[in-house]
Design a protein around this nucleic acid. Sequence first.
RNA 1: GCCGAGAUAGCUCAGCUGGCAGAGCACGUCCUUGGUAAGGACGAGGUCACGGGUUCGAUUCCCGUUCUCGGCUCCA
Length: 584
Amino acid sequence: MSYGPEEHYKGLSPELEKCRHSAAHIMAQAVKRLFPEAKITIGPAIETGFYYDFDLNKPFSPEDLTRIEDEMRKIVKENYPFLREELSRGDATLLFEKMKEPFKVEILNEIKEDRVSTYRQGEFLDLCRGPHLESTGKLKAFKLLSIAGAYWRGSEKNKMLQRIYGTAFPSQQELDAYLKQIEESKLRDHRKLGKELGLFSIHSEAGPGLIFWQPKGGRVRWVLENFWRQEHFRRGYEFVYSPHVARLELWKTSGHWDYYRDSMYPPMELEEDQYVTKPMNCPGHILMFRSGVRSYRDLPLRFAELGTVYRFERTGVLHGLMRVRGFTQDDAHIFCTPQQLQGEIQSVLELVDFMMKIFAFTYQVALSTRPEKFAGQLEMWDKATQALEEALKARNIPYKVDPGEGVFYGPKIDIKLIDALGRPWQGPTIQVDFNLPERFEATYVASDGKHHPVVMVHRAVWGSMERFLGILIEHFGGAFPLWLSPVQVKVLPITSDEIPYAQEVKQRLVKEGLRAELDDRSEKIGFRIREAQVEKVPYMLVIGGREAQGHTVAVRERKKGDLGVMDLDAFLKKAQEEVEQKSA
RNA sequence: GCCGAGAUAGCUCAGCUGGCAGAGCACGUCCUUGGUAAGGACGAGGUCACGGGUUCGAUUCCCGUUCUCGGCUCCA
């Protein structure tokens, strides 16, 4: 499973493409003016802007970025036309050799066409397919954003280059809107909100990539887990628990030791035996499946577990809750007959749809088919792929096909969820697995009295509690819907005279199952409201003399503000209904 | 792991070119009883991430380690 937000290439309009690609050239020109020793490599337009990679001995500093940007403004002002020239590949190679641009020469060596094109603006010339703006003066709005290391041709084995990221738009308004969106994303950063709202923490004393759920985050997770169990039980899942460590031998049988060792914590020696912490739950579940003779009458068997796994991830890739070393998957393995496969996939798709709607995510579906290297029989692959495809069709789900993108052990359906800011995240996954049943000789007895290999479906709806909560934090900007909020209601007496009634109100709410807290500190009401707002508490009940007298509450909603006075019972009913409906 | 940047009070951050460590918020005590987003006074808080080095003297300069951040690569 991968970490998002990931590349979600909608394809740029030709206009935007030209604008950004030209911006990249102008940046390269500016860099060459300021750092003549820099070697140019490639500089494409990307969804969020553009970049250009340079080979230069000394690193760019943030001040350099400003200087480069200023130089770019000059180039825009100088308004050079972008001039296209065509020449033979051989001539181009000679040209770039003369210019001492070895990376361009390397690219030319791999180009198959005989004719190539270059673009010139002023003194700067680059090998490029184009197209470009008419002239540098047409670049209206751009900004350089960051400096980063990037491998030449994206390979770890190659030299590390220096990449400068920037963005450009046809108009200043569009640029401003984009910069504002970046700010908005920063405000929603789950690491920032997680700290501010007391949801979770990470401690260097304990180690990187290990999450500690603080009380507030613990509440949210607890609510989510209960909901998850309830929905799964309703849908015929059984809950199992499997140990966190197991003999190394088990992981050799499953194949993980061969294929996945780099991501596993190394073995522990115990009484002349070796144990490893689990990086996945599947081998445990398959042991449980295999613990007795299974008849086709017993199937399907759906083993679900909020299973905590540990994977070694390189420090450089760790990221808040999104990429961690210890996490809890909302895992389940479905053991069924080939005939049942399509129906089971449909049920999972139904569950996925249900879950996505609950949290107000939209989503996109992709079907990944057989890769070149694969386990199992061809015939099985075809049947399984067909089952996945038919399940999607039966449920009228639009999807695209990613040919050859399946895992070696089986085809899969991957679902990307789109959050409130339109950002995509790797979400639910449904994978058919031919490999493990074979390795473990997991079979069932069919009506013919013979053993047949069982079909195993591996699926996760949320992925992991950590990542899903991270996505939820960003999706809701920390303002969880009522049913998920760690503190749902804050009771705020105006003066100390109303404390007894406020206590009564709070206790009533708690008794009725709401997570209510009383803030009776001797602070002004405005101050306590502000604090509750900052904590993103959905409802504040302001209680003054009038309310205490009339057994009412003055309701304030965090987004809509003052809702006016209500009977306590009326508020209770309203809140309970909202919780029940899980309105997002 | 790689390139770059960073680590100063619980949090957010200031501290120019070496000379006994600062602000706001939060926290504690007291005053204030205030009707829908910040009332006031006083106070406590630091091995300047850790370990070495240079120096009369290091939060500041150098090296290493750990962790964090932006990317790259990786990611069943």
